[in-house]
Computed example of a mutant assay.
Amino acid sequence: MIVSCELCGTKYRLDPSRIHKDSAKVRCSRCGHTFVVKKDDLSEAPVPADAAPSGREADQEETLAYEQPAPKPLRPQATPKKRGARRLLLGLLLLAIALAAAAYYLHSTGFWKAAPPEEAAPPAPAPAAVPQVSIEENLQAYFLENASVGQIFVVEGKVVNEESRPVSFVLLEGKLYTGDSQPALVQRAYCGNVLSKEELMQMDMADVQNAMMNREGKDLTNVHIPSMGKVPFMIVFHNLPDLDLLKDYSVEVVSAQVDQ
């Protein structure tokens, strides 16, 4: 008798004399599946003789409860190699090596050396105090008509050296103010330079200004002024604005030098 396993298809030779009824239960020795064979399914063919029903199984009822065979163990398949991921990792490794080499080179050449701390700038020297030179209060101010520029304004007076030592090169600054106390004109002159009214009216104004800026003063009167000594001065304004706008003037000492 030839039987075939319903699950895996393996064929077996079965002795019909061992089947006492119309059917019997048989278990496949290859896959373990249990199935029912009937006498009507007989055939003659050479098959493996390693399947045979037991006496107990041959006596079973025709009804067969099928059992699910145990699953065969599966061998895990090898994961295919991902060449793309390997190339990416290799590229990242090469990039890291290149960056490390560049950083080492820049560090060795001093490119990344920390900048030296900025040295604190030395404090600016305090401005030298102006020597004690005062201006006498009895100033004279008047207008004259100059031949080249027209009307000019002149301020005359004297300075007093109140230092205990001689001073030189006293420089003054005069200002003309408008009604809102804003300076309209500013003019400077060194002491010791005094011109007559005739010279002020006849001389070219450029020559007048050059005379006023003589640092030593006429006849060196602005050099080695003794303590409590007095020196005359003159400040000449030209290119005057509208006279109705002028309301006041002032004169102050800008600088002087104490003799050593």
Rank of each mutant, 00 (worst) to 15 (best):
G150W: 03
F233I: 02
G91H: 09
Q60D: 03
H238Q: 03
R75S: 10
L200Q: 11
S181T: 08
P123L: 11
E163P: 05
A58L: 06
A115I: 09
I2H: 03
E216V: 00
R188P: 05
S108C: 13
P232Y: 07
L172M: 13
P69V: 11
Q68R: 15
N210V: 12
D244A: 14
K38M: 06
V208Y: 01
D180H: 06
P80V: 06
H238E: 00
A65W: 02
R188G: 10
P69Q: 11
T178W: 04
V251L: 14
V231I: 11
R165E: 02
G179W: 12
R75P: 04
V36M: 04
P241F: 14
A24T: 13
A124V: 14
G9P: 04
E216Y: 00
F233Y: 11
P48C: 01
L7C: 07
K197A: 08
R83L: 12
A189M: 01
P183W: 03
I225E: 05
P76D: 08
E136P: 08
L139E: 05
L42A: 10
P166D: 13
G150K: 02
Q68I: 15
V133R: 00
K82M: 03
M201D: 08
E145G: 00
V130L: 10
D219L: 12
A206S: 14
F111V: 09
D219Q: 13
G192S: 06
S54F: 01
E162I: 10
A102I: 13
K81D: 06
K175Q: 14
A129S: 10
L90E: 06
H107V: 13
L243Y: 02
R30S: 10
E162W: 12
V154N: 04
R13W: 08
K39I: 07
P69R: 11
E163G: 05
A120Q: 13
L171S: 06
E57F: 05
R27C: 12
A24N: 05
S250A: 07
V154R: 02
V186E: 09
P123H: 09
A52K: 13
P16N: 08
L171H: 08
F111R: 07
M212T: 00
A24H: 03
A129H: 13
E6L: 12
E163R: 06
D15C: 07
A65L: 03
V149M: 11
S148Q: 15
R75N: 10
V208D: 01
E137R: 14
E162H: 15
V223W: 01
Q151R: 12
D59K: 15
P183F: 02
C31A: 10
S181G: 02
A114V: 15
A78D: 11
D219V: 09
E145H: 00
G157T: 15
A98D: 10
L88G: 13
D248H: 01
L172Q: 09
N214Q: 04
L14A: 11
N222P: 03
D244M: 08
Y105S: 10
H33C: 01
Y66S: 00
L7G: 02
A184T: 03
E162D: 15
E156V: 02
G174F: 08
A52R: 14
M201E: 15
A70L: 12
P73E: 01
A49V: 07
R13Y: 05
L88C: 11
L139A: 04
P131M: 01
S17A: 13
S255W: 07
D259C: 05
V155P: 04
E137Y: 12
E199P: 06
D59V: 14
Y12A: 07
V155K: 04
D180T: 11
